[in-house]
Nucleic acid binder design. Sequence first.
DNA 1: GGTGCTAAGATACGCCTCGTATGTAAACGG
DNA 2: CCGTTTACATACGAGGCGTATCTTAGCACC
Lengths: 195, 195
Amino acid sequence: MAAKRRAQMVEETRAKLIRAAREAFSSKGYSASSMDDLTAAVGLTRGALYHNFGDKKGLLQAVIDQIDGEMLERMRIAQEHAANPWEGLLQESVAYIEMALEPEIQRIMLLDGPAVLGDPSQWPNQTACLRRTESIVRELIDDGTLKPVDAEAAARLLNGAALNAALWIAAADDPRAVLKKAVDAFLELATGLRR
Amino acid sequence: MAAKRRAQMVEETRAKLIRAAREAFSSKGYSASSMDDLTAAVGLTRGALYHNFGDKKGLLQAVIDQIDGEMLERMRIAQEHAANPWEGLLQESVAYIEMALEPEIQRIMLLDGPAVLGDPSQWPNQTACLRRTESIVRELIDDGTLKPVDAEAAARLLNGAALNAALWIAAADDPRAVLKKAVDAFLELATGLRR
DNA sequence: GGTGCTAAGATACGCCTCGTATGTAAACGG
DNA sequence: CCGTTTACATACGAGGCGTATCTTAGCACC
């Protein structure tokens, strides 16, 4: 029972630390999170942390990678449920807005992440999110649905608009009402790309 | 000569500290900037800082207020030089993109600011920037140029798209080429709001 | 099965930074 | 001219990060 495989033990401690970090980073923010407290919360010390992740930034990076994977998956699902590619693009953006409403994603992915690790477009997975959108845009340009704009530029702008909408909504008194306004305006705006 | 008025002396030290902070924050980032070094660089100590700004965040807030004022002014100028309100709206957004290319604005206003002080829409001046855009949008809706969308939502989305475009451009290998792509796509996207 | 080796994690240390509490000297008001 | 307030400096304590060292437990190989 106590005789677990080594690799498995390591994976467990890494998972424990990442879980604790998600909790601490999203509630207190990155810089206010003490690594001493964080590790102690799961029965470890900073030794384990520095051994596994190198430094505090390394832990944040690991957390971001994990959340990024989850976001990508949710966007994929949203797009798959749409009737056609154009709807898929819109649904994906709406999903993005909704995710950005969650405090954890907002704090870690949208606020602390970029500030600590630099521009988000450098992150491999964030790029993956974007590449999804971009490839759909390209597809829609090819089949004549969209104007022949630069696909990457269009994807960036759409994501940017969605992201800012999300930050706005999250800070609003009545998120529901604001969400509706934002989505409505977003759908209108997006038609600017249609041929 | 040395007999200056007190208020003037205070204004000078505040200006010195803000100038040093703009330099330090934009080059090293907020958290990596030591208040000891920063104050020593202009011949003061942390005493002056904590007396004038309360704490490190207070200094950042002062820096942000100053930069915000400059940004607002530049957007105002860009919009005034346009032939008509619709062009004014576009020019203002382009000016925003161009400003966001500057490392100082990017680092302080777009990365560290939101992370340290919270959502930008809480900042009084950032709201002022937005209010400008919003009032123009409202005007254009009233005169029938734009679709009857929610003015604030539209303003947010436009600013968000512009902001993300700027971050993209800044990280690009060939900023000039990318700037052109982004502006082109932005102008197309914005037409989605036209009636 | 025993043994040398490697790696995971704990413990201990020093450095830096922030915020505050206290001190001091100069400017203001009467 | 003098008490008071204000602006800033100095001194102090508390964390927090990163690293260097130490211990223990698993693994490979004989």
